[in-house]
Write a protein that binds this DNA or RNA. Structure first.
Lengths: 198, 198
DNA sequence: GGAATGACAGATTTTGAAATCTGTCAGCTG
DNA sequence: CAGCTGACAGATTTCAAAATCTGTCATTCC
């Protein structure tokens, strides 16, 4: 890599790390590699990130933010009723996860590793997603189409019940033929449970 | 181990294999170990099981049958309405899985390995469980308390939606404090979805 | 003086040779 | 003869030495 003479910023380190991860995968991507790609000593990288774990976490956060940006738009989509929002949201989440698992396997693997380690970036990602779910459920309650006692608890239940379609541990199953239908069957059942009965 | 002079039956091999697995875990349990425990040559073991994989599969089948025997009783419990049966069934499934994961970690690990490999024993185990679910759902439809178009599809949706509470990939999470409540929240939501609306 | 370096200790990973394992089968044994 | 053995080829695993990596910090450089 050309040792660019620009200042060494956190952002440049993150970009280089992502590149190294993409090329080598999470198991074989070292801080030394990142430094080499930037044309600096590895000590310099440690000036910006206290540990290798912190660096991985930051890269994953950046990647997650980029990848699931569009989802939050659905939460406030005025042209959709809460039920349609929920359907679109789950469909969008699943589509994005599956696409990334296929298109960027190495970065997805990094995310998976962090997920099993309860990394900070993954923790906030999940908190972010359940927060979005809570807001949709709340909107449904406000509109009178949903009846639930505690939107936040319900949101977590929805998230848990759909784990098979967003938890990276199931990534392999996402390629099998009938999955789309499986997601729909689960979401149908859950939406029936949310609906008001009077 | 005392080289018992009884005939070498499949059953004796299975018992010895289970013992070896319990002692060494799935990674370090070899066919040679099993043969040594029985006081025979490993060639004799291959007379009864074509491959090591077949042996592992048979041991796991035996273990699964023993472990989840009691569940099937709930399916036909006349004293419970279908909704109560479903609750009891899920609670029982979760309790059994969690107990086994804690009490017999090595055998549970063997089961987990087979699960990720889509082993035959695990496949029938899952088919068996969804079959039981289907029968409970069907009973609910017959009784008029549930309304669903296709009990088998619904049963699979129920099974997928509760994966977090029976899929061995989540075993680690089963020890955390709030899990019981999480299962209840999901089951509540699903049952609301099953109930008839008129 | 603030940023970068590179040498260093201890931890982790790689590597390749030796040991063990899987699955087969010709022959032994009772 | 039915059931068991043990030697064998090729695959896999183990193990210990060598290489590399992580994280620190005194020193160098601009």
């Amino acid at each position: 890599m050309a040792p660019t003479s620009e200042a060494l910023t956190a952002e440049r380190i993150l970009a280089a790390t992502e590149e190294v991860l993409r090329r080598h995968g999470p198991a074989k991507a070292t801080v030394v590699d990142v430094a080499r790609a930037l044309g600096v000593s590895h000590g310099s990288v440690y000036r910006h990130f206290r540990t290798k774990a912190a660096l991985r976490d930051a890269v994953t956060k950046r990647w997650l933010d980029r990848t699931f940006e569009s989802l939050s738009g659905i939460v406030t989509a005025e042209d959709l009723d809460p039920e349609a929002r929920l359907r679109a949201w789950f469909a969008g989440l699943f589509a994005a996860k599956r696409r990334k698992a296929g298109d960027e396997p190495e970065l997805f693997a990094t995310f998976s590793v962090l997920a099993t380690e309860n990394g900070g970036a993954v923790g906030s990602h999940i908190a972010d997603l359940t927060g979005q779910l809570t807001r949709i459920v709340q909107a449904g309650v406000d509109a009178g189409t949903f009846t639930v006692s505690d939107p936040a608890t319900t949101a977590r239940a929805l998230f848990h019940a759909t784990g098979r379609f967003h938890d990276p541990r199931y990534a392999r199953e996402w390629e099998q033929p009938g999955v789309e239908g499986e997601l729909e069957a689960v979401v149908d059942l859950l939406l029936r449970g949310l609906r008001s009965r009077d």
